[in-house]
Design a protein around this nucleic acid. Structure first.
Lengths: 239, 239
DNA sequence: ATATTTATGTTAAATTAATCACATACGGGG
DNA sequence: CCCCGTATGTGATTAATTTAACATAAATAT
């Protein structure tokens, strides 16, 4: 039962689709497309028109019957929902390979995400700059973040340092952690959002899919040859 | 209805959890833990014991009633399911920031993923090595991949080059594409698995969550002050 | 040996998500 | 100004996923 005035819980599946909408609408906007229907979006995105309408209705009534959606308006609305109507300040913690790559990546600023500092323990890195972003010692991190209204901390430190860094971050005003370490972060006391980018998980998922088709081939081959019978007819039980 | 001998379709949700099981079991193995119950795994992973049992049963009967699961055996089984009982050959396409960072990352080899070559169009990079991995011109890519039994192509090229590269990859024996470009790849003709790592999407999801809590605060504040009523009681409709 | 405890594999129930279907409202054309 | 076509927003339906429940089999203790 939904109490009056209560916030409707939006499922993660919907939230994960929002960036797709945002991107697609951005492209339409650049092509000077004025209006778009859920059906047209369906073709572009590969979701059903029904799902698109229902997704958007979690956040408001942005369309107009008989007309569709105004591209510019819907783009603005989704930007607001995603919190990218205002810009964000980020710091990168850990100036290793990945940290440096992210610091050099130009794409974030286009969406209002600005990297303003990097932190590292390595004295030979501290004082240097990457893509014109200064590297400071980790000891200064807590003070710096609070002082400069940093929203987002990008975690690219080695696995064993993660816990220590997260502990420090809970003392700051940081609102979100973009976690590239393989560790699953859990923060109890404070309201800090965490988004994990577990690259190894992603690679293993790919490996599964590669393997899956191979298993199927083998499975069918063995079935053809009459080699395959097991108690439950499970493909993966094949020895 | 499941026909005898037919492969049971495993849902993506399950597949995405497999790497978590794999990682967790690896840690238990290193701690010399011999056996583990679904309940213990539940505590470690944060999934329900019921879900864990059901997930694993998609692939076989690995446990024993009254005992639980043998850690080493289950680890091996999951490794097989994920296709990491054998090693994989990878190439990186695009020696930019991200491509170089991935080339320098040591963690892949530990799971049997070996990067054997990098390809780039930039003549000043070709001929050099990154982390002892040679950089070749993109023109040699097709030949090289087929010649060296490359399984996986890691795509870290600029957005506008993606389509061209994917087209070339469909002519090769590559089995999977690990896609770091923002483009959504669709391959019709050939059976190539694609796993996307859309970093911007991930960052926007984080931004949403940061924004979400702020919206809620504002929502409650306005409700307290009696400022908030709209036709549908939707939080996001607040002006 | 036998009883008791434990923890699986699996079926059933509950929950959640996606799709369908349609009444309704708006825009455009005559 | 009115009618017709279009495409939304939403309630109903269906599908998928998660959780619960339990019968059963193995391990352990007596």
């Amino acid at each position: 039962m939904e109490l009056p005035g209560e916030i409707k819980k939006v499922s993660i599946a919907v939230i994960k689709r929002l960036p797709k909408y945002y991107k697609c609408l951005g492209e339409l906007l650049r092509k000077n497309v004025e209006r778009v229907s859920s059906q047209e979006l369906s073709k572009l995105l590969g979701f059903t028109a029904s799902q698109i309408r229902q997704d958007l209705n979690n956040f408001g009534e942005f369309g107009q019957q008989g007309y569709g959606y105004n591209v510019a308006q819907l783009y603005t609305e989704i930007s607001k929902i995603l919190g990218i109507n205002t810009s964000h300040k980020m710091v990168i913690i850990g100036a290793g390979n990945l940290g440096q790559a992210l610091a050099n990546y130009a794409g974030f600023a286009a969406h209002g995400f600005n990297i303003i500092a990097i932190f590292d323990t390595n004295p030979s890195l501290v004082g240097r700059k990457i893509n014109n972003i200064p590297i400071y010692p980790v000891e200064d991190m807590e003070y710096y973040i609070n002082r400069n209204d940093v929203d987002i901390a990008v975690l690219t430190v080695p696995q064993d340092q993660t816990e220590k860094i997260v502990k420090i971050l809970t003392n700051t005003d940081v609102r979100g952690i973009w976690n590239f370490t393989p560790v699953d972060i859990n923060i109890d006391d404070k309201d800090i959002a965490v988004e994990n980018v577990h690259l190894i998980d992603s690679l293993l998922t790919l490996s599964y899919h590669i393997n899956e088709s191979w298993l199927q081939e083998r499975f069918l081959r063995q079935k053809r040859n009459g080699q395959f019978v097991n108690s439950k007819n499970k493909a993966y039980m094949v020895k």
